[in-house]
Write a protein that binds this DNA or RNA. Structure first.
Length: 621
RNA sequence: GUCCCGGUAGCUCAGCUGGAUAGAGCAGCGGACUUCUAAUCCGCAGGUCGAAGGUUCGAAUCCUUCCCGGGAUGCCA
């Protein structure tokens, strides 16, 4: 315990040991566990860390909290860690403030300075299955898909960074009647001598998708309305005809679906082509977005098609599913609405596929934890699916351990009217257009700031800056909150933005590059004593030490925005250090070496953090 | 009706799971580029944390009720 604390990176661990000993000594009669309640100070003038333990403990033993705080600091030995405590260390109702010794800070930093930046591999790495992206066949990705892709990938990256295995799963909506409707339509067009299916773009497919939807929608409501008003017979006749046509279209689409399900070669070929067109475009965007989502991560609904029937039979046989109004449902304790898993007509529903997906992710992929990065509006759906899967025993691994299932819900992207940007509105912003706009704006800024930069590099910088701006804008807010989409907000390059973080890292790299150019032995400086004397150095050092803990907190909470906040604070602390503490022109070689090492550490943490969020980094900008 | 999620500066948002005088960015005002790149830094100004109660040494944070906004709610996915 003491050994471990001595080797710790986080000063909180060092202090906890000292405070525990002091409290035990001050209150020998105290029984049971207690918390030392050590946290970083919010205001640096008060100290670096504080313990709030005296207040609850005083209550427990019936003492005055300030008096108890006094007794604690009498026993508190901070040798080698912090400045000796005195009466001034106590403030307010009984806060105990601690100021760290520069030497202790340097030693902690030295322990952070490992190839893994203080992140130790887990004793038993876990398998975390992360649901990402959420694409549907024949539909373009729009800004609504940004979140599932970017946040999901970031969460997966955090687990990977911590030494766990992340398996991304893109649950592609590639099955069912809507898909059959488009497939039937494009196939019929091709058969009639129109455009071949292969020649279609995703944009074409999406238009066909909408057209197919419209063609298959019976306008019974409109007819009812017309009849209720005693409308014109001609209008009535026309609507009746349209309804007939729609029914015919639906019948044709159903027939196509049956052919597809039966393995009909022609139907299968059309479906495959539509799939290839959609996924090709989707994966190009995923790559451009600097995510690690690739083809191997696609597990479409179609991949469950042969598993659903047997699974449902199994649920019925074991009495987990029951009939209700002709449909089959699974009731889950604590949820009013049951999960529907089979329609009256025998068809399966999205809950069915999702339950099968839980089973596969736990029992075949070996997931210890399943994370669903999906819109918050699906919240009830996932509570039902998780509950049903648990009831069925599908969340239990072959070895008997039970997987943890979590819906990492994100808020909706809204339009200026405060309503969700919806696919059918037709006014939604395409993801590809957003990226193009971002890069175009970044290119303008790059040209202004770096007129001498070679053309090709300017392009690369613009791409990285634009993508980082968008991703950071999406990642930096609390996950569950909605936001109103705005180009200006998402493509800002100043202040608390992705490019700000990239810029701070570029400044680090510039110094290190220049040092090498000037013939300074940078490698030697990497072993230099860390002299933390100036306030900005201290601020930077204290933040650096929090990095491993922040990563762990993000994995625990599934909230990447915490890493954003941390990196922004770190970049700000570095910027302040940069302005106030000359490195290459430091007053002595020892200080210069120390600062070079501090720069290097800051750069590595920043770079590592950016990469863990999935934001591209740069050498210059 | 029931359930879920939000409400913090003019705007966009943080607030480390109950700690001290609630913090940033943008916008506004004023400073700092012959210096390691100013996509930066420093300063000023800006707040009954939706409302009212409660819990306790201490509440933006926990509990209750209410107000406002959004969402979900068995045979679409």
């Amino acid at each position: 315990m003491h050994e471990k604390a001595n080797a710790s990176i986080d000063p909180v661990d060092l202090l906890r040991v000292r405070f525990e000993a002091a409290i035990r000594a001050a209150l020998p009669e105290l029984e049971g566990e207690f918390d030392t309640l050590i946290t970083p100070s919010r205001q640096e003038k008060l100290g670096d860390f504080q313990s709030n333990a005296a207040m609850p403990l005083a209550k427990r033993v019936g003492m005055n909290p300030r008096e108890l705080a006094g007794k604690i600091i009498e026993k508190l030995d901070l040798t080698g860690v912090g400045e000796a405590p005195g009466p001034d260390s106590i403030a307010g109702p009984g806060f105990i403030n601690v100021r760290l010794l520069p030497s202790a800070l340097g030693e902690c930093l030295g322990r952070l300075d490992t190839p893994e930046l203080g992140v130790s591999p887990p004793e038993s790495p876990r398998i975390v299955v992360v649901d990402v992206c959420g694409v549907n066949l024949a539909k373009q990705l729009h800004v609504g898909h940004l979140r599932a892709t970017v946040i999901g990938d970031a969460i997966a990256r955090v687990f990977e960074r911590l030494g766990d295995t992340a398996i991304r799963q893109s649950h592609v909506g590639d099955w069912g009647l809507p898909i059959a409707m488009v497939a039937w339509r494009v196939s019929a067009t091709a058969d009639a001598g129109g455009a071949s299916v292969q020649s279609l773009t995703l944009g074409d497919l999406e238009r066909e998708y909408r057209a197919a939807q419209a063609a298959c929608r019976p306008e019974t409501r409109a007819l009812e309305r017309v009849r209720a008003r005693g409308g014109h017979p001609k209008a009535e006749a026309e609507l009746e005809l349209r309804i007939e046509e729609a029914e015919a279209a639906r019948a044709a689409a159903r027939a196509f679906l049956v052919a597809l399900q039966g393995g009909d070669e022609a139907a299968w070929g059309v479906w495959q082509t539509i799939r290839d067109i959609t996924m090709g475009e989707c994966l190009r965007l995923c790559a451009r977005l600097h995510t690690r989502i690739t083809d191997e991560h696609s597990a479409g609904e179609s991949s469950y098609r042969t598993e659903l029937g047997p699974m449902v039979e199994d649920l019925v046989a074991r009495g987990i599913a029951e009939e209700s109004d002709g449909a089959l449902v699974v009731r889950v304790d604590g949820i009013g609405e049951p999960a529907l898993i089979r329609k009256g007509d025998g068809g399966f529903l999205y809950a069915t596929t999702d339950i099968a997906a839980v089973k596969r992710r736990v029992q075949d992929l070996g997931g210890d934890e399943l994370v669903y990065c999906v819109d918050a509006r699906q919240s009830l759906h996932f509570r039902q699916v998780f509950g049903a899967a648990e009831k069925a025993g599908y969340t239990t691994k072959p070895d008997g351990t039970v997987a943890r299932l979590e819906h990492a819900a994100f808020g909706t992207v809204l339009g200026e009217d405060n309503k969700p940007l919806k696919t059918r509105s037709g006014e939604n912003v395409k993801l590809a257009d957003l990226l193009d706009e971002a890069v175009a704006r970044a290119a303008t800024t790059v040209a202004e700031k770096n007129p001498d930069m070679p053309e090709r590099e300017r392009g690369e910088v613009a791409e990285a800056v634009g993508i980082a701006a968008i991703k950071y804008a999406d990642l930096s807010g609390e996950r569950v909150k909605d936001y109103v989409f705005s180009f200006d907000r998402m493509l800002a390059f100043e202040g608390n933005t992705g490019p700000y973080l990239q810029y701070a890292l570029v400044r680090v790299r510039n110094i290190l590059r220049k040092a090498r150019d000037e013939g300074i032995d940078v490698e030697a400086a990497m072993g230099a004593d860390l002299l933390i004397t100036e306030a900005p150095e201290k601020q930077l050092a204290l933040l650096l030490l929090r990095y491993p803990g922040v990563l762990a907190g993000v994995a625990q909470s599934l909230e990447p925005h915490r890493l954003c906040t941390y990196l922004y604070d770190l970049a700000t602390a570095y910027s302040s250090f940069y302005e106030n503490c000359p490195v290459l022109k430091a007053e002595s070689d020892a200080v210069r070496s120390s600062r070079l090492r501090l720069c290097s550490l800051a750069g590595r943490v920043l770079g590592d953090g950016l990469e863990t969020l999935g934001l591209p980094t740069l050498e210059r900008m």
